[in-house]
């Protein structure tokens, strides 16, 4: 329960060597969401155990979850849940394989179909939540059942077809001869571009400001003339589209199966929450949510390096999720 302690330790070790600089540094560390310190501590721990560890792989394999978490964050900040993203990933991977069936020329068309599908799922989720007033937990749970059932019905339980190479390259291949790193996996480029776009959308655009307003106090936002239903619906669309991108990456390196997306909805919510997002809405940042997703992957790598059974990752993850939120709510109470 005390896993949030890395933060205080780091603060102490900074030490006020030069008063003004030290104080400033201390302030920077204090204002940094603890997730970055946790991620840094994990990476350092891996480095101390295995200096030759392929750190790029953490970012490569964590990219899908990080993107998903950043998309889910939009819905969480707006004060809702999206439990349908995991099943949407499964739909994207299996349906793409069925439609493309190994034909490289179909890839642009498949991408277009998947993006349309993402928009439709997001709009339907948003419609059910905002117009039918069904709590988002139930609405997206229902959507999850519908998507899982549909994909299994269409594929008959075993996915047909396969993904062409130019579809899989996003999650699987890498840019060779990249300076410093040697190779740069494409998924990291996708993560970077998507991350920047989502950052701009949530924290720089007017749409983002509306999401924070709606999540902070939807009644006040409504009275201020904000289209609450429209804003929430768009947040669901962003979340669904991030699931489409995550599905394209996962299809690249995880391959085609009917359970490829299992559990990703809870992983994404956990990642966003570890990154300081409040499930009551109104709080959270894209960078911290992405760091949350990468932290999960780093944790997996660390347990691997230490030789612990990989199953224990779940346990440590659970403790970190609870600890991070307990720390966040403690801070919030102190701030009041």
């Amino acid at each position: 329960m005390t896993l949030e302690t890395p933060a205080p330790i780091d603060r102490v070790s900074m030490g006020p060597s030069e008063a003004s600089l030290g104080v400033r540094a201390l302030r920077t560390v204090r204002s940094t969401p603890p997730i970055f310190l946790i991620l840094l501590a994990l990476l350092l721990a891996i480095y101390s155990q295995a200096p030759t560890y392929n750190f790029v792989s953490i970012f490569k394999n964590g990219a899908a979850l990080a993107i998903l978490a950043a998309g889910e964050l939009f819905v969480i900040v707006s004060g809702e849940f999206d439990l349908s993203v995991g099943s949407l990933i499964t739909v994207v991977v299996t349906m793409s394989a069925t439609i493309a069936n190994g034909d490289p020329s179909s890839t642009p068309m498949v991408f277009a179909v998947m993006i349309v599908l993402g928009v439709v799922v997001g709009v339907v989720n948003g419609f059910i939540v905002t117009r039918l007033h069904v709590p988002s937990f139930v609405a997206t749970l229902g959507m999850m059942l519908i998507l899982v059932g549909a994909v299994n019905y269409i594929t008959g339980g075993t996915p047909l077809g396969n993904l062409p190479a130019n579809f899989r390259m996003f999650g699987r291949d890498a840019i060779n001869n990249f300076p410093v790193l040697g190779t740069l996996p494409n998924s990291i480029v996708v993560l970077f571009v998507t991350g920047l776009l989502l950052y701009w959308l949530l924290q720089r655009s007017n749409f983002g400001k509306r999401i924070y307003a709606v999540g902070g106090n939807s009644r006040a936002a409504d009275l201020a003339g904000i289209d609450v239903a429209g804003t929430k619906t768009l947040a669901f669309v962003v979340s669904a589209l991030s699931a489409v991108v995550a599905g394209i990456l996962l299809g690249g390196y995880a391959g085609v199966s009917v359970n490829v997306g299992n559990g990703y909805e809870f992983q994404a919510i956990s990642a966003a929450v570890i990154g300081g997002a409040a499930l009551t809405g109104g709080r959270g940042t894209v960078a911290a949510a992405i760091a949350g997703g990468l932290t999960m992957q780093a944790l997996f790598a660390l347990l691997n390096v230490l030789g612990y059974p990989p199953e224990l990752r779940d346990t440590v993850e659970g403790v970190i999720v609870i600890g991070a939120v307990a720390y966040g709510s403690y801070q919030l109470r102190n701030a009041k």
Partner: peptide
């Protein structure tokens, strides 16, 4: 610890 029940 005031952790949201969903997360807890």
């Amino acid at each position: 610890l005031r952790v949201n029940p969903f997360v807890a």
